[in-house]
Design a protein around this nucleic acid. Sequence first.
DNA 1: TATGTAACGAACTTTTTTGTTCGTAGATTT
DNA 2: AAATCTACGAACAAAAAAGTTCGTTACATA
Lengths: 128, 128
Amino acid sequence: MPDVTVKNEIFYNPVDFVLKKIGGTWKIPVLWRLRKKVFRYTELQKDIPHISQKMLTQTLRELEAEGFISKKIFATVPPHTEYALTEEGTKAIGIIEIIRNYGLELMKKEGIDYEELIKAELKTKKEN
Amino acid sequence: MPDVTVKNEIFYNPVDFVLKKIGGTWKIPVLWRLRKKVFRYTELQKDIPHISQKMLTQTLRELEAEGFISKKIFATVPPHTEYALTEEGTKAIGIIEIIRNYGLELMKKEGIDYEELIKAELKTKKEN
DNA sequence: TATGTAACGAACTTTTTTGTTCGTAGATTT
DNA sequence: AAATCTACGAACAAAAAAGTTCGTTACATA
């Protein structure tokens, strides 16, 4: 495996190439939400637990630059924006789904019931 | 998506769960080499460009703890070890292949000819 | 006797990735 | 007049990941 530099980014192999694009803590949570509907900035912020404004903005910028999402600005007051998957983004979702299913399998093997955890989480949120 | 803690590791979603296991700079290069043959420690070190002793050891320890590879120690002098994929590791290779193919596709779209780069790399090595 | 070998451990430094805090616009509601 | 809304930018701080350097064992060969 060679080291390849593209636009000042080094990567070691094709997998690395993919993970530089859709890896990191926040890109998946964003892409995953956009998979079936368009989101506004604030909606994403509300929907993704723990994400900070900075990380959301940064994540959206990168995904946009890489061609996975598109941005539409509405010149209202206050202005708002809408983010949607592009065709390339939809393709990425296909891959993400595969990794996700594998993750669910692995979790099950370790005795983690993800569905259960989601329910518990929602309950906690309502209590807070 | 809840935040789930398993064995002191937080993860935000099933994809994250997978990438905590096989992500990072060196796990893929190691797993990928083991996909069709067993390797000794030193062979891996020679075969993976840039990897340091520390990162190789650390990577092998983690992959072993996660059940993707197995280790066999030969009590010769000096002793040597052999690393091989486990069944779980073989499963992971299936997923890695999918990500890898997607990576090759993306690279092609950006005009990067990976095969070409590998050839160039090998040539450089011989020249050095 | 010095050097080499295979496979490490430990201490420490650097780099990369995340997170925190503060400030902006311009109209609208309290 | 002060506070709210939406979508940011910038400076700085903390945490996580990767990399560097040095040392070890125990036999074998130059």
